[in-house]
Design a protein around this nucleic acid. Structure first.
Lengths: 147, 147
DNA sequence: GGTATTTAGTTATCATGATAACTAAATTTT
DNA sequence: AAAATTTAGTTATCATGATAACTAAATACC
């Protein structure tokens, strides 16, 4: 997250940067603006999911399992390949989602270390129920940006 | 932070969004890309500061005090006006920065509830020492983006 | 001038990110 | 086939974000 409310002016960036090339000042300005806007959007998204007693990470886990063509389960390692949080965070989050009955986990047949994760009926329904609002939050934010 | 590594294709977004207007699909795609890129950059920045035994928040606190024209201290509340983290996080972070001797805090004369925060010599030097690398990280990231 | 409200900052507690160190199973190497 | 390494996932612990509830001082209201 990037927490600075008022971004530095170009002049200020120029003052701090040792090399004063326009290109560098430009790219720093663009980067700061991108981080700030993304942070504001991420906050709105997290607030949306928090209102629905969940989190963006839980949502992403549901969606990567759901969007997999021709499969109805993924290994924990496959989910981790698609979402870059650390393994312990993945373990903990999956456990909470099992508790909430959004997913089920069962031992893999061919590799006894591995675990198959699949959506429950409840998880599927829940994903469908939060998706429209998720798009709404993003669209509304992007509309406001254009103004 | 936005953790999804492979963003959904336009088709996939279209499949999930109830309304299929191009505009909506477009803005969702743009937003996801922005959040993903910003997250990657923020991670690099945090890694950079972590290598220097500090954090982006500490850096931002130093810089908002430093960049204030005609003043060499700010009230905690003024720092909070400029950086949107919660007050308890601000309190805790300022305390750690006092422990590290990057800043000093003293009671305000006119308002006995308030505290003036100013940079120490060490804090000033430290800020100067990390600034070039900070710009480097951002510039390098933005260069790679263009490719 | 006394009561009520607001403002400044802190403390306690929780949620969620990380890394390091671990167990157990699979795989590679020799 | 035994030993070494890699891979899958977990546990323990820490860092850093949040909110709720608090103290104390300043300000507003009557």
């Amino acid at each position: 997250m990037f927490f600075l409310k008022e971004l530095p002016t170009r002049q200020m960036i120029q003052g701090y940067a040792k090399q004063h090339s326009m290109e560098i000042v430009d790219s720093v300005e663009t980067a700061l603006l991108m981080m700030r806007q993304a942070s504001l959007l991420v906050r709105q998204i997290e607030a949306y999911f928090s209102d629905h007693d969940t989190s963006q990470l839980r949502f992403l886990i549901l969606i990567v399992i759901d969007r997999e063509p021709e499969r109805d389960s993924l290994l924990v390692s496959e989910i981790s390949d698609r979402i870059d949080v650390s393994r312990p965070v993945m373990t903990r989050t999956l456990q909470s989602m099992v508790d909430e009955k959004l997913i089920v986990m069962k031992a893999d047949q061919s590799d006894r270390r591995a675990k198959q994760v699949s959506l429950t009926e409840k998880g599927c329904k829940f994903l469908e129920s939060v998706l429209p609002g998720y798009f709404d939050v993003i669209c509304k934010f992007m509309m406001d940006l254009k103004k």
